[in-house]
Write a protein that binds this DNA or RNA. Structure first.
Lengths: 229, 229
DNA sequence: TCAAAAGTGTTTAGTTTACACCCATGC
DNA sequence: GCATGGGTGTAAACTAAACACTTTTGA
Protein backbone atom coordinates (compact mmCIF):
# COMPACT_ATOMS: atom_id res chain seq x y z
CA UNK A 1 0.00 0.00 0.00
CA UNK A 2 2.74 2.41 -0.90
CA UNK A 3 0.28 5.04 -2.02
CA UNK A 4 -0.09 6.16 1.56
CA UNK A 5 3.53 7.16 1.73
CA UNK A 6 2.91 10.24 -0.37
CA UNK A 7 1.85 13.56 1.10
CA UNK A 8 -1.42 14.55 -0.51
CA UNK A 9 -2.94 17.79 -1.70
CA UNK A 10 -6.35 18.68 -0.33
CA UNK A 11 -9.16 18.21 -2.85
CA UNK A 12 -12.11 20.53 -3.32
CA UNK A 13 -14.85 21.18 -5.86
CA UNK A 14 -15.90 24.66 -6.97
CA UNK A 15 -19.10 25.43 -8.87
CA UNK A 16 -19.72 28.08 -11.48
CA UNK A 17 -23.51 28.40 -11.39
CA UNK A 18 -25.01 30.34 -14.28
CA UNK A 19 -28.51 31.77 -14.31
CA UNK A 20 -30.56 34.09 -16.49
CA UNK A 21 -32.46 36.87 -14.77
CA UNK A 22 -35.75 38.55 -15.60
CA UNK A 23 -34.10 41.48 -17.30
CA UNK A 24 -32.17 39.18 -19.62
CA UNK A 25 -28.72 39.23 -18.14
CA UNK A 26 -26.47 36.25 -17.69
CA UNK A 27 -25.48 35.94 -14.06
CA UNK A 28 -23.30 33.79 -11.87
CA UNK A 29 -23.70 32.94 -8.20
CA UNK A 30 -20.90 34.15 -5.94
CA UNK A 31 -20.57 34.02 -2.18
CA UNK A 32 -18.83 36.53 0.05
CA UNK A 33 -16.32 34.71 2.23
CA UNK A 34 -16.78 34.88 5.96
CA UNK A 35 -13.31 33.65 6.89
CA UNK A 36 -9.69 34.05 5.92
CA UNK A 37 -8.11 33.62 3.49
CA UNK A 38 -9.78 36.16 1.23
CA UNK A 39 -12.26 37.20 3.91
CA UNK A 40 -15.03 39.37 2.44
CA UNK A 41 -13.91 38.65 -1.10
CA UNK A 42 -16.34 37.18 -3.58
CA UNK A 43 -15.70 33.53 -4.41
CA UNK A 44 -17.24 30.60 -6.19
CA UNK A 45 -19.23 28.27 -3.96
CA UNK A 46 -17.30 25.12 -3.21
CA UNK A 47 -16.00 22.77 -0.58
CA UNK A 48 -14.05 19.68 0.25
CA UNK A 49 -14.66 16.35 -1.39
CA UNK A 50 -15.63 13.63 1.08
CA UNK A 51 -13.53 10.48 1.13
CA UNK A 52 -16.25 8.18 -0.17
CA UNK A 53 -17.90 10.67 -2.50
CA UNK A 54 -17.70 10.83 -6.28
CA UNK A 55 -16.54 14.16 -7.71
CA UNK A 56 -19.83 14.70 -9.57
CA UNK A 57 -21.73 13.95 -6.38
CA UNK A 58 -19.66 16.47 -4.44
CA UNK A 59 -20.35 19.13 -7.08
CA UNK A 60 -24.08 18.39 -7.07
CA UNK A 61 -24.10 18.51 -3.29
CA UNK A 62 -22.48 21.96 -3.33
CA UNK A 63 -24.94 23.12 -5.97
CA UNK A 64 -27.90 21.96 -3.95
CA UNK A 65 -26.55 23.45 -0.73
CA UNK A 66 -26.24 26.83 -2.41
CA UNK A 67 -29.33 26.96 -4.58
CA UNK A 68 -31.63 24.13 -3.55
CA UNK A 69 -31.79 22.88 -7.13
CA UNK A 70 -31.21 19.37 -8.39
CA UNK A 71 -31.38 17.69 -11.75
CA UNK A 72 -30.03 20.57 -13.78
CA UNK A 73 -27.23 20.63 -16.29
CA UNK A 74 -23.91 20.28 -14.50
CA UNK A 75 -20.60 19.27 -16.03
CA UNK A 76 -16.97 19.10 -15.06
CA UNK A 77 -15.04 22.10 -16.33
CA UNK A 78 -11.36 21.76 -15.46
CA UNK A 79 -9.08 20.94 -12.56
CA UNK A 80 -6.99 23.73 -11.12
CA UNK A 81 -3.88 22.75 -9.25
CA UNK A 82 -1.24 25.48 -9.25
CA UNK A 83 0.85 24.90 -6.12
CA UNK A 84 0.25 28.37 -4.66
CA UNK A 85 -3.38 28.86 -5.58
CA UNK A 86 -4.47 28.60 -1.92
CA UNK A 87 -2.36 30.33 0.74
CA UNK A 88 -3.29 27.68 3.31
CA UNK A 89 -1.34 25.02 1.46
CA UNK A 90 -1.71 22.73 -1.51
CA UNK A 91 -5.33 22.56 -2.57
CA UNK A 92 -6.39 21.12 -5.90
CA UNK A 93 -9.85 22.09 -7.06
CA UNK A 94 -12.07 20.33 -9.57
CA UNK A 95 -14.31 23.02 -11.08
CA UNK A 96 -17.82 22.35 -12.38
CA UNK A 97 -20.30 24.58 -14.14
CA UNK A 98 -24.07 24.40 -13.96
CA UNK A 99 -27.04 26.08 -15.64
CA UNK A 100 -30.13 26.86 -13.61
CA UNK A 101 -33.41 28.60 -14.23
CA UNK A 102 -32.89 31.61 -12.00
CA UNK A 103 -36.52 32.66 -11.74
CA UNK A 104 -37.45 29.55 -9.85
CA UNK A 105 -34.67 29.63 -7.30
CA UNK A 106 -33.04 32.09 -4.98
CA UNK A 107 -29.62 31.59 -3.41
CA UNK A 108 -29.65 30.14 0.07
CA UNK A 109 -26.19 31.10 1.23
CA UNK A 110 -24.20 28.51 3.11
CA UNK A 111 -22.78 28.74 6.62
CA UNK A 112 -19.37 29.85 5.50
CA UNK A 113 -20.71 32.83 3.57
CA UNK A 114 -21.32 36.39 4.67
CA UNK A 115 -23.51 36.90 1.68
CA UNK A 116 -24.49 35.30 -1.62
CA UNK A 117 -25.58 37.02 -4.77
CA UNK A 118 -26.06 36.69 -8.51
CA UNK A 119 -23.50 38.79 -10.37
CA UNK A 120 -23.56 39.89 -13.99
CA UNK A 121 -21.20 37.70 -15.96
CA UNK A 122 -20.00 40.53 -18.16
CA UNK A 123 -19.53 42.90 -15.22
CA UNK A 124 -17.86 40.90 -12.47
CA UNK A 125 -16.43 42.20 -9.19
CA UNK A 126 -12.68 42.69 -9.03
CA UNK A 127 -10.38 40.69 -6.79
CA UNK A 128 -12.18 37.42 -6.65
CA UNK A 129 -10.75 34.95 -4.13
CA UNK A 130 -8.08 32.40 -5.12
CA UNK A 131 -7.86 31.80 -8.89
CA UNK A 132 -11.60 32.13 -9.28
CA UNK A 133 -11.29 34.86 -11.87
CA UNK A 134 -9.52 32.37 -14.10
CA UNK A 135 -12.03 29.61 -13.34
CA UNK A 136 -14.90 31.89 -14.26
CA UNK A 137 -13.20 32.98 -17.44
CA UNK A 138 -12.82 29.40 -18.50
CA UNK A 139 -16.42 28.60 -17.60
CA UNK A 140 -17.71 31.45 -19.75
CA UNK A 141 -15.60 30.35 -22.69
CA UNK A 142 -16.77 26.79 -22.30
CA UNK A 143 -20.40 27.83 -22.08
CA UNK A 144 -20.08 29.96 -25.21
CA UNK A 145 -18.44 27.12 -27.11
CA UNK A 146 -20.70 24.38 -25.86
CA UNK A 147 -23.98 26.17 -26.30
CA UNK A 148 -23.34 26.24 -30.03
CA UNK A 149 -23.20 22.52 -30.60
CA UNK A 150 -25.14 21.03 -27.70
CA UNK A 151 -28.68 21.91 -26.66
CA UNK A 152 -27.82 22.89 -23.12
CA UNK A 153 -29.11 26.45 -23.22
CA UNK A 154 -32.62 25.29 -22.47
CA UNK A 155 -31.48 24.70 -18.89
CA UNK A 156 -31.46 28.44 -18.34
CA UNK A 157 -35.06 28.91 -19.43
CA UNK A 158 -38.39 27.86 -17.94
CA UNK A 159 -39.70 24.51 -19.21
CA UNK A 160 -41.87 26.34 -21.74
CA UNK A 161 -40.47 29.23 -23.71
CA UNK A 162 -41.00 31.26 -26.86
CA UNK A 163 -38.60 31.33 -29.76
CA UNK A 164 -37.88 34.96 -28.96
CA UNK A 165 -36.81 34.04 -25.46
CA UNK A 166 -34.58 31.34 -26.85
CA UNK A 167 -33.04 33.69 -29.36
CA UNK A 168 -32.47 36.29 -26.68
CA UNK A 169 -30.74 33.63 -24.58
CA UNK A 170 -28.31 32.81 -27.35
CA UNK A 171 -27.68 36.46 -28.03
CA UNK A 172 -26.82 36.96 -24.38
CA UNK A 173 -24.51 34.01 -24.08
CA UNK A 174 -22.78 34.55 -27.40
CA UNK A 175 -22.79 38.29 -26.85
CA UNK A 176 -23.84 39.15 -30.40
CA UNK A 177 -27.11 39.71 -32.28
CA UNK A 178 -28.68 36.91 -34.31
CA UNK A 179 -31.02 37.22 -37.26
CA UNK A 180 -34.59 36.43 -36.29
CA UNK A 181 -35.64 34.78 -39.51
CA UNK A 182 -32.63 32.54 -39.73
CA UNK A 183 -32.63 31.63 -36.07
CA UNK A 184 -36.22 30.45 -36.22
CA UNK A 185 -35.85 28.53 -39.42
CA UNK A 186 -32.78 26.74 -38.15
CA UNK A 187 -34.20 25.97 -34.73
CA UNK A 188 -37.47 24.58 -35.98
CA UNK A 189 -35.91 22.62 -38.79
CA UNK A 190 -33.88 20.64 -36.27
CA UNK A 191 -37.09 19.13 -34.98
CA UNK A 192 -36.17 19.05 -31.31
CA UNK A 193 -38.74 21.59 -30.18
CA UNK A 194 -42.30 20.66 -29.44
CA UNK A 195 -45.01 23.25 -29.81
CA UNK A 196 -47.14 23.32 -26.69
CA UNK A 197 -49.65 26.14 -26.61
CA UNK A 198 -49.89 29.90 -26.97
CA UNK A 199 -49.00 32.71 -24.66
CA UNK A 200 -52.03 34.38 -23.11
CA UNK A 201 -52.79 37.89 -21.92
CA UNK A 202 -49.86 39.64 -23.53
CA UNK A 203 -50.23 43.06 -25.10
CA UNK A 204 -49.20 41.83 -28.53
CA UNK A 205 -49.68 38.88 -30.79
CA UNK A 206 -49.32 35.84 -28.52
CA UNK A 207 -46.33 33.66 -29.32
CA UNK A 208 -46.25 29.90 -29.47
CA UNK A 209 -44.67 28.25 -26.48
CA UNK A 210 -42.28 25.38 -27.05
CA UNK A 211 -40.54 22.84 -24.94
CA UNK A 212 -37.31 21.01 -25.59
CA UNK A 213 -37.99 17.41 -26.53
CA UNK A 214 -35.04 15.56 -25.06
CA UNK A 215 -36.21 12.14 -26.26
CA UNK A 216 -36.43 13.34 -29.83
CA UNK A 217 -33.00 14.91 -29.53
CA UNK A 218 -31.46 11.72 -28.16
CA UNK A 219 -33.04 9.72 -30.90
CA UNK A 220 -31.80 12.09 -33.57
CA UNK A 221 -28.23 12.09 -32.27
CA UNK A 222 -28.20 8.32 -32.56
CA UNK A 223 -28.84 8.63 -36.27
CA UNK A 224 -26.04 11.12 -36.83
CA UNK A 225 -27.83 14.41 -36.19
CA UNK A 226 -25.76 17.28 -34.85
CA UNK A 227 -27.21 20.22 -32.98
CA UNK A 228 -25.74 23.49 -34.14
CA UNK A 229 -26.41 27.19 -33.84
CA UNK B 1 -5.65 25.85 9.04
CA UNK B 2 -8.69 23.63 9.22
CA UNK B 3 -8.03 22.20 5.79
CA UNK B 4 -5.65 19.73 7.35
CA UNK B 5 -8.44 18.16 9.36
CA UNK B 6 -9.85 16.46 6.30
CA UNK B 7 -8.66 13.06 5.10
CA UNK B 8 -7.42 13.41 1.55
CA UNK B 9 -7.60 11.32 -1.57
CA UNK B 10 -4.31 10.53 -3.28
CA UNK B 11 -3.77 12.50 -6.49
CA UNK B 12 -2.26 11.15 -9.69
CA UNK B 13 -1.96 12.14 -13.33
CA UNK B 14 -2.48 9.73 -16.22
CA UNK B 15 -1.45 10.40 -19.80
CA UNK B 16 -3.12 9.30 -23.00
CA UNK B 17 -0.30 9.63 -25.53
CA UNK B 18 -1.37 9.42 -29.16
CA UNK B 19 0.95 8.78 -32.07
CA UNK B 20 0.64 8.01 -35.76
CA UNK B 21 2.70 5.15 -37.10
CA UNK B 22 4.31 4.58 -40.49
CA UNK B 23 1.46 2.45 -41.75
CA UNK B 24 -1.09 5.14 -40.97
CA UNK B 25 -2.68 3.86 -37.82
CA UNK B 26 -3.54 5.93 -34.78
CA UNK B 27 -1.87 4.46 -31.73
CA UNK B 28 -1.70 5.04 -28.01
CA UNK B 29 1.11 4.26 -25.60
CA UNK B 30 0.28 1.73 -22.88
CA UNK B 31 2.47 0.14 -20.26
CA UNK B 32 2.18 -3.33 -18.83
CA UNK B 33 2.03 -3.12 -15.06
CA UNK B 34 4.75 -4.82 -13.06
CA UNK B 35 2.96 -4.72 -9.72
CA UNK B 36 -0.43 -5.27 -8.16
CA UNK B 37 -3.11 -4.11 -8.46
CA UNK B 38 -3.75 -5.07 -12.08
CA UNK B 39 -0.35 -6.73 -12.44
CA UNK B 40 0.39 -7.53 -16.10
CA UNK B 41 -2.61 -5.54 -17.29
CA UNK B 42 -2.13 -2.75 -19.78
CA UNK B 43 -2.51 0.72 -18.30
CA UNK B 44 -2.00 4.35 -19.15
CA UNK B 45 1.32 5.79 -18.02
CA UNK B 46 0.89 7.93 -14.94
CA UNK B 47 2.04 8.65 -11.43
CA UNK B 48 1.64 10.70 -8.31
CA UNK B 49 1.60 14.48 -8.30
CA UNK B 50 4.39 15.97 -6.19
CA UNK B 51 3.37 18.38 -3.45
CA UNK B 52 4.97 21.42 -5.04
CA UNK B 53 4.27 20.53 -8.65
CA UNK B 54 1.68 21.98 -10.97
CA UNK B 55 -0.69 19.45 -12.57
CA UNK B 56 0.49 20.33 -16.08
CA UNK B 57 4.07 19.94 -14.97
CA UNK B 58 3.35 16.52 -13.51
CA UNK B 59 1.72 15.41 -16.75
CA UNK B 60 4.61 16.71 -18.84
CA UNK B 61 7.05 14.97 -16.52
CA UNK B 62 5.23 11.67 -17.00
CA UNK B 63 5.15 12.19 -20.74
CA UNK B 64 8.86 12.84 -20.88
CA UNK B 65 9.67 9.90 -18.62
CA UNK B 66 7.79 7.57 -20.94
CA UNK B 67 8.66 8.93 -24.34
CA UNK B 68 11.54 11.36 -23.97
CA UNK B 69 9.57 14.06 -25.79
CA UNK B 70 8.93 17.61 -24.68
CA UNK B 71 7.19 20.59 -26.19
CA UNK B 72 4.39 18.69 -27.85
CA UNK B 73 0.66 19.27 -27.65
CA UNK B 74 -0.60 18.22 -24.23
CA UNK B 75 -3.87 19.21 -22.64
CA UNK B 76 -5.92 18.32 -19.60
CA UNK B 77 -8.70 15.90 -20.46
CA UNK B 78 -10.82 15.19 -17.40
CA UNK B 79 -10.52 14.28 -13.75
CA UNK B 80 -11.63 10.83 -12.70
CA UNK B 81 -12.59 10.36 -9.09
CA UNK B 82 -15.02 7.49 -8.57
CA UNK B 83 -14.46 6.28 -4.99
CA UNK B 84 -13.66 2.68 -5.98
CA UNK B 85 -11.64 3.27 -9.12
CA UNK B 86 -8.45 2.11 -7.38
CA UNK B 87 -8.61 -0.93 -5.09
CA UNK B 88 -5.80 0.46 -2.92
CA UNK B 89 -7.98 3.28 -1.67
CA UNK B 90 -9.21 6.65 -2.79
CA UNK B 91 -7.17 7.88 -5.72
CA UNK B 92 -8.29 10.78 -7.88
CA UNK B 93 -6.61 11.01 -11.26
CA UNK B 94 -6.27 14.03 -13.51
CA UNK B 95 -6.03 12.69 -17.06
CA UNK B 96 -4.13 14.43 -19.86
CA UNK B 97 -3.80 13.65 -23.54
CA UNK B 98 -0.84 14.37 -25.77
CA UNK B 99 -0.01 14.12 -29.46
CA UNK B 100 3.47 13.09 -30.54
CA UNK B 101 5.19 12.36 -33.79
CA UNK B 102 5.73 8.66 -33.35
CA UNK B 103 8.42 8.23 -35.99
CA UNK B 104 10.87 10.32 -34.06
CA UNK B 105 10.43 8.67 -30.69
CA UNK B 106 10.29 5.22 -29.23
CA UNK B 107 8.85 4.39 -25.82
CA UNK B 108 11.36 4.16 -23.02
CA UNK B 109 9.37 2.20 -20.48
CA UNK B 110 9.56 3.32 -16.88
CA UNK B 111 10.70 1.35 -13.86
CA UNK B 112 7.24 0.29 -12.86
CA UNK B 113 6.47 -1.28 -16.22
CA UNK B 114 7.03 -4.81 -17.47
CA UNK B 115 6.65 -3.57 -20.98
CA UNK B 116 5.52 -0.55 -22.98
CA UNK B 117 4.01 -0.51 -26.44
CA UNK B 118 2.01 1.48 -28.94
CA UNK B 119 -1.47 -0.01 -29.37
CA UNK B 120 -3.93 0.58 -32.16
CA UNK B 121 -6.57 2.98 -30.93
CA UNK B 122 -9.38 1.24 -32.76
CA UNK B 123 -8.24 -2.21 -31.64
CA UNK B 124 -7.35 -1.93 -27.95
CA UNK B 125 -6.53 -4.74 -25.55
CA UNK B 126 -9.30 -5.89 -23.23
CA UNK B 127 -9.22 -5.48 -19.49
CA UNK B 128 -7.23 -2.33 -19.13
CA UNK B 129 -6.26 -1.48 -15.55
CA UNK B 130 -8.44 0.74 -13.36
CA UNK B 131 -10.94 2.85 -15.33
CA UNK B 132 -8.47 3.38 -18.12
CA UNK B 133 -10.83 2.03 -20.74
CA UNK B 134 -13.16 4.90 -19.91
CA UNK B 135 -10.31 7.44 -19.87
CA UNK B 136 -9.16 6.31 -23.29
CA UNK B 137 -12.67 6.44 -24.66
CA UNK B 138 -13.01 10.00 -23.54
CA UNK B 139 -9.61 10.93 -24.94
CA UNK B 140 -10.54 9.57 -28.37
CA UNK B 141 -13.81 11.46 -28.37
CA UNK B 142 -12.06 14.64 -27.33
CA UNK B 143 -9.40 14.23 -29.98
CA UNK B 144 -12.03 13.68 -32.66
CA UNK B 145 -13.98 16.72 -31.58
CA UNK B 146 -11.02 19.00 -31.05
CA UNK B 147 -9.17 18.17 -34.21
CA UNK B 148 -12.06 19.63 -36.19
CA UNK B 149 -11.89 23.13 -34.81
CA UNK B 150 -8.32 23.51 -33.61
CA UNK B 151 -5.17 22.92 -35.63
CA UNK B 152 -3.67 20.33 -33.28
CA UNK B 153 -3.43 17.46 -35.73
CA UNK B 154 -0.11 18.77 -37.04
CA UNK B 155 1.46 17.53 -33.81
CA UNK B 156 1.14 13.98 -35.08
CA UNK B 157 3.01 14.67 -38.30
CA UNK B 158 6.62 15.52 -39.10
CA UNK B 159 7.36 19.24 -39.30
CA UNK B 160 6.99 19.11 -43.08
CA UNK B 161 4.17 17.17 -44.66
CA UNK B 162 2.16 16.85 -47.84
CA UNK B 163 -1.52 17.66 -48.09
CA UNK B 164 -2.18 13.98 -48.70
CA UNK B 165 -0.53 13.08 -45.42
CA UNK B 166 -2.60 15.69 -43.66
CA UNK B 167 -5.80 14.45 -45.25
CA UNK B 168 -4.93 10.87 -44.34
CA UNK B 169 -4.38 12.00 -40.75
CA UNK B 170 -7.82 13.53 -40.55
CA UNK B 171 -9.38 10.48 -42.14
CA UNK B 172 -7.71 8.28 -39.53
CA UNK B 173 -8.72 10.37 -36.55
CA UNK B 174 -12.24 11.03 -37.73
CA UNK B 175 -12.53 7.50 -39.03
CA UNK B 176 -14.23 8.50 -42.29
CA UNK B 177 -13.15 9.39 -45.82
CA UNK B 178 -12.82 13.02 -46.87
CA UNK B 179 -13.07 14.45 -50.36
CA UNK B 180 -9.65 15.33 -51.73
CA UNK B 181 -10.67 18.36 -53.71
CA UNK B 182 -12.62 19.93 -50.93
CA UNK B 183 -10.09 19.13 -48.24
CA UNK B 184 -7.32 20.85 -50.15
CA UNK B 185 -9.35 23.89 -51.09
CA UNK B 186 -10.47 24.40 -47.51
CA UNK B 187 -7.04 23.81 -45.97
CA UNK B 188 -5.20 26.15 -48.31
CA UNK B 189 -7.85 28.84 -48.17
CA UNK B 190 -7.35 29.13 -44.42
CA UNK B 191 -3.86 30.45 -45.06
CA UNK B 192 -2.13 28.77 -42.14
CA UNK B 193 0.04 26.47 -44.22
CA UNK B 194 3.31 27.58 -45.68
CA UNK B 195 4.60 25.92 -48.81
CA UNK B 196 8.20 24.86 -48.31
CA UNK B 197 9.58 22.76 -51.14
CA UNK B 198 8.84 19.67 -53.15
CA UNK B 199 9.22 16.01 -52.39
CA UNK B 200 12.14 14.36 -54.13
CA UNK B 201 12.83 10.89 -55.45
CA UNK B 202 9.30 9.56 -55.29
CA UNK B 203 7.88 7.32 -57.99
CA UNK B 204 5.13 9.73 -58.88
CA UNK B 205 4.57 13.42 -59.33
CA UNK B 206 6.37 15.04 -56.37
CA UNK B 207 4.07 16.75 -53.92
CA UNK B 208 4.56 20.12 -52.30
CA UNK B 209 5.64 19.98 -48.69
CA UNK B 210 4.02 22.36 -46.23
CA UNK B 211 4.55 23.38 -42.68
CA UNK B 212 2.07 24.72 -40.19
CA UNK B 213 2.62 28.42 -39.65
CA UNK B 214 1.71 28.92 -36.01
CA UNK B 215 2.40 32.65 -36.05
CA UNK B 216 0.02 33.18 -38.93
CA UNK B 217 -2.59 31.07 -37.17
CA UNK B 218 -2.28 33.03 -33.94
CA UNK B 219 -2.54 36.28 -35.80
CA UNK B 220 -5.62 35.13 -37.69
CA UNK B 221 -7.41 33.94 -34.55
CA UNK B 222 -6.96 37.38 -33.08
CA UNK B 223 -8.96 38.84 -35.93
CA UNK B 224 -11.82 36.41 -35.56
CA UNK B 225 -10.68 33.54 -37.76
CA UNK B 226 -11.83 30.07 -36.81
CA UNK B 227 -10.05 26.91 -37.87
CA UNK B 228 -12.47 24.27 -39.06
CA UNK B 229 -12.44 20.98 -40.94
C1' DT C 1 -56.36 52.72 -34.15
C1' DC C 2 -51.89 52.21 -32.30
C1' DA C 3 -47.85 50.00 -30.19
C1' DA C 4 -45.50 45.88 -29.61
C1' DA C 5 -43.89 41.72 -30.57
C1' DA C 6 -44.92 37.41 -33.48
C1' DG C 7 -44.22 35.34 -37.53
C1' DT C 8 -43.39 34.83 -43.00
C1' DG C 9 -41.49 35.47 -48.17
C1' DT C 10 -37.91 36.01 -50.95
C1' DT C 11 -33.44 37.35 -53.05
C1' DT C 12 -28.62 36.96 -53.12
C1' DA C 13 -24.16 35.38 -51.93
C1' DG C 14 -21.44 31.98 -50.40
C1' DT C 15 -20.26 27.24 -49.15
C1' DT C 16 -20.39 22.25 -49.57
C1' DT C 17 -20.63 18.16 -52.16
C1' DA C 18 -19.63 15.40 -55.89
C1' DC C 19 -17.46 13.83 -59.89
C1' DA C 20 -14.19 13.88 -63.55
C1' DC C 21 -10.25 14.89 -65.41
C1' DC C 22 -5.18 16.21 -66.29
C1' DC C 23 -0.10 16.22 -64.56
C1' DA C 24 4.67 14.82 -63.26
C1' DT C 25 7.65 11.42 -61.85
C1' DG C 26 10.45 6.75 -61.55
C1' DC C 27 10.75 2.40 -63.22
C1' DG D 1 4.49 3.91 -71.68
C1' DC D 2 2.35 2.86 -67.53
C1' DA D 3 1.52 2.83 -62.63
C1' DT D 4 1.22 5.95 -58.91
C1' DG D 5 -0.09 9.51 -56.35
C1' DG D 6 -0.34 14.90 -57.04
C1' DG D 7 -3.18 18.45 -58.29
C1' DT D 8 -7.31 21.21 -60.75
C1' DG D 9 -12.19 22.69 -63.03
C1' DT D 10 -16.72 23.06 -62.50
C1' DA D 11 -21.90 22.04 -61.96
C1' DA D 12 -25.48 21.35 -58.74
C1' DA D 13 -27.37 21.40 -54.19
C1' DC D 14 -27.66 23.41 -50.11
C1' DT D 15 -27.09 27.01 -46.41
C1' DA D 16 -26.51 31.51 -44.52
C1' DA D 17 -27.34 36.41 -44.54
C1' DA D 18 -30.08 40.26 -45.26
C1' DC D 19 -34.15 42.80 -45.61
C1' DA D 20 -38.88 43.89 -45.72
C1' DC D 21 -43.19 42.77 -45.02
C1' DT D 22 -47.81 40.89 -42.83
C1' DT D 23 -50.33 39.28 -38.55
C1' DT D 24 -52.43 39.29 -34.01
C1' DT D 25 -53.12 40.79 -29.73
C1' DG D 26 -54.31 44.34 -25.54
C1' DA D 27 -54.86 48.86 -24.38
Amino acid sequence: MYTYEYPRPALTVDCVIFGLDQSHELRVLLIKRKHEPFQSHWALPGGFVEMDEDLDTAAKRELEEETGVRNVFIEQLYTFGAPQRDPRGRVVSVAYYALVNLNEHQPKGADDAEDADWHKVFDLPENLAFDHQQVLQMAIQRLQAKVRYQPIGFGLLPAQFTLSMLQKLYEIILNRPLNKRNFRTKMLKMGILEQVERQKAVAHRPAFLYKFNEEKYKHLTQIGFMFEI
